[in-house]
Amino acid sequence: MTRALIADANLIKKVQAGEDPIGCVLCNQACLVEDVSNPIISCQLNPDAGYELEPTPKGFFQTRLKPTRLIKNSIVSIVGSGPAGMELAVSLAEAGFEVELFEKDRELGGALRRISNAGVGGVWCRSLTHYLARIENGRIKTFTDNEVLPDDIAQMAERGPLFLATGSVGSSCHSTMSGYHNWISSSDLLKSPLPAHQERVYVLDNKGDHESAWAVETAACFSDEVVLVTADPSPFSRLHKTGDLMPAISRARSLGVKFLTFTEMRAKGDSVEISKRFSPQRELVQDHMVIEVGARESSRLIEVDGNQTRQIFEIGDCFAPRTIQDAIREARCYSRALLELVAT
Score class of each variant (00 low, 15 high):
G243D: 09
G243I: 08
D244H: 11
M246S: 13
M246Q: 14
P247R: 02
P247D: 03
A248Y: 02
I249L: 07
S250Q: 15
R251W: 12
A252C: 12
R253I: 10
R253V: 11
R253P: 02
S254E: 15
L255I: 06
L255C: 09
V257H: 00
V257N: 03
K258V: 09
F259M: 08
T261I: 10
T261K: 05
F262H: 15
T263L: 06
T263R: 03
M265L: 15
R266M: 12
G269V: 10
S271M: 11
E273F: 05
S275Y: 04
S275Q: 11
K276L: 13
R277C: 08
F278N: 09
Q281D: 11
Q281W: 06
R282M: 11
E283F: 07
L284A: 06
V285K: 08
M289D: 00
V290G: 01
I291W: 01
E292Q: 10
V293H: 00
G294Y: 03
G294R: 00
A295D: 07
A295G: 04
A295P: 02
R296P: 01
R296I: 05
E297K: 15
S298C: 12
S298H: 08
L301N: 04
L301G: 03
E303F: 10
D305Y: 09
G306H: 01
N307V: 15
Q308D: 14
Q308E: 15
Q308H: 12
Q311F: 01
I312H: 02
I315A: 01
D317E: 11
C318G: 06
C318F: 03
C318R: 02
F319K: 14
